[in-house]
Nucleic acid binder design. Structure first.
Lengths: 327, 327
DNA sequence: TTGAAAGCGTTACCAG
DNA sequence: CTGGTAACGCTTTCAA
């Protein structure tokens, strides 16, 4: 059997109540009492039972992270940052991968709800309504999406697109294609919106070639549509899609950037390793995770918050070999 | 306040005990009682409080996953598979990323110990001794490593190396280099051992150029050592290291595979997307995760197990563009 | 088959 | 500053 607070109390010669106080709020007991308790706890290797604690306090010291696909290289760094920041504040992390299935999301949230103090929803795929009505009882921070009334952390997609379009314009491009991500993806819609505005502002032609899965295969599937369009450059929903494009272009003998310039989004770790290295819009994924945790902790500490907190993080165009001047 | 078993009992007109029985072991109550309880629970949206349950049963229905670096593309697929299999059996998953720091591992395990029914340790970096003495109280399955007396799931590294060396021999290579991973990595040592045996068996020369971090940067750092060695091919500890080699080779104008053949290990998702695509030894990472969970559940169900279970999964050489005949 | 009551380990409250 | 007692929500005896 595990060592309980009673064992510590007996060894220290005090009551369980005092042990509890000594360990949770040292200021509330006399110094010598605290010392005896601490040494007794140390000696016995006492670890408080969090289930029992959470039963009475209502707190669990756990955070729930829900995301659509850990295999998308965008997420691991976010999760790492969340993990790191959570650990700093003694929170443990539940992870739930929904495999891009919106129908799994709500059940996953409900299943975890009892065991966490709050949720970090990363790029959730379910509808606003579903999320709003099912995540009401616990604090929620949404990453990569905005859902009223939850606080959110997003990247400045519009500005990223503005930078990308400006770059292409400077290279002489006048007509560009966009390969969209899943219609259920808020990031996709936000980037699409930003791209439309940026191309319109410069009088550039924009050809949208449809929506694909946010994967390499999705990008490969759209490549031929891009080639059939009267454009000299293509922007992809994200780097995975861009990678798929590059791959298929290579297979069809289309040289990048000589024939066609390609720009991705996210700056996933492998983006710079390819031939050619991918020009892309970088997002500070670590910051997303960190700020998300901070926001959540804040929300959990003081439930009084006026207005909706929306943190928008800067994006940064990274120019690499996959973009070049028109010929 | 959340709805408790008492609320359900009141609405159904029975005692809390009966509600408990009806919900956990339907066979032990009369059919009509069960129906009333079920509909009452449904109507109220009752969710059992797992903290309270675990307090008395000692079970948590949680699994703990500890791994060194989620940013290494090898792990996300493993975690996804674990998650998926765990969900099938109604287990939730705690994730703890130790950031390749052995010193964080044991504290991470201890912190989670109380809240999980068992651990899946993925490529743990701490010493056998530390792990043995700190993970005694909960069932543990080790992935990508063998630590007596824990059950383990590993890849057949030796056979993978045999295949790789056979491939190189067939292409005419007689001397190869090996860029090793962290000394604390069991996989590294196992692969090194397998490689030594395989090259010896074929009378090939093996030059070991030291140990590097299991990252792209680690590989890049070792590239020049490889070029200085009298070899025509190089095997890397894993794909990330191989990627680093490829990158640095390219920067130095060394053509692959014309000047030098390169083989990685793991077959991470991006391995096939590069220029040149990476020849590598594939591991079924999903199977590792799935089998790991199965083993753990088995272990938790019946603590009686004679002998140590060691599951060794097959590896498969994937030949791509980064290997070619000697010139 | 069902209900009453005890108890899991902890914290909160109230006397002292 | 400390100890006793109740309570968190659930499961598990034990009687009926």
């Amino acid at each position: 059997m595990a060592v309980t607070i009673k064992d510590v109390a007996r060894l220290a010669g005090v009551s369980p109540s005092s042990v509890c106080r000594a360990l949770t709020d040292p200021a509330r007991v006399r110094a010598d009492t605290r010392e005896r308790v601490e040494s007794a706890a140390e000696q016995l290797g006492y670890r408080p039972n969090r289930a029992a604690r959470s039963l009475i306090t209502g707190r669990t010291a756990n955070l729930g992270v829900v995301l659509p696909d850990l295999a998308n290289p965008f997420f691991p760094t976010v999760v790492k940052a969340i993990q790191k920041q959570a650990r700093r504040f003694d929170y443990a992390v539940f992870l739930s991968d929904t495999d891009e299935d919106p129908a799994v999301e709500v059940p996953a949230i409900r299943a975890l709800a009892m065991q966490v103090d709050g949720f970090l929803l990363c790029s959730p795929r379910a509808s606003d309504h579903e999320l709003r009505s099912n995540a009401r009882d616990k604090p929620v921070v949404v990453l990569n999406r905005r859902i009223t009334p939850f606080p959110s952390v997003t990247a400045d997609n519009a500005d990223g697109m503005r930078q990308a379009v400006g770059h292409l314009a400077a290279l002489g491009h006048r007509a560009v294609a966009y390969v969209g991500g899943p219609r259920t993806s808020w990031s996709h819609r936000d980037r699409q919106r930003g791209l439309r505005a940026a191309t319109a502002a410069r009088g550039m032609r924009l050809v949208e070639v449809g929506n694909v899965a946010p994967t390499v295969d999705g990008g490969a599937a759209a490549a031929d549509l891009v080639l059939a369009a009267p454009v000299t450059a293509v922007l992809a929903y994200n780097d995975l899609v861009a990678l798929g494009l590059l791959q298929r272009f290579q297979a069809r003998g289309v040289r990048v950037p000589e024939h066609l310039s390609v720009i991705g989004f996210d700056d996933i770790p492998v983006a710079g390793l390819l031939g050619p290295p991918l020009t892309t819009v970088a997002i500070d994924t670590e910051q997303i995770g960190r700020v998300g945790v901070d926001l959540l902790l804040e929300l959990m500490a003081g439930p009084v918050h006026r207005g909706v907190t929306r943190r928008v993080l800067p994006t940064q165009l990274i120019v690499r070999g996959s973009t070049g001047p028109t010929v």
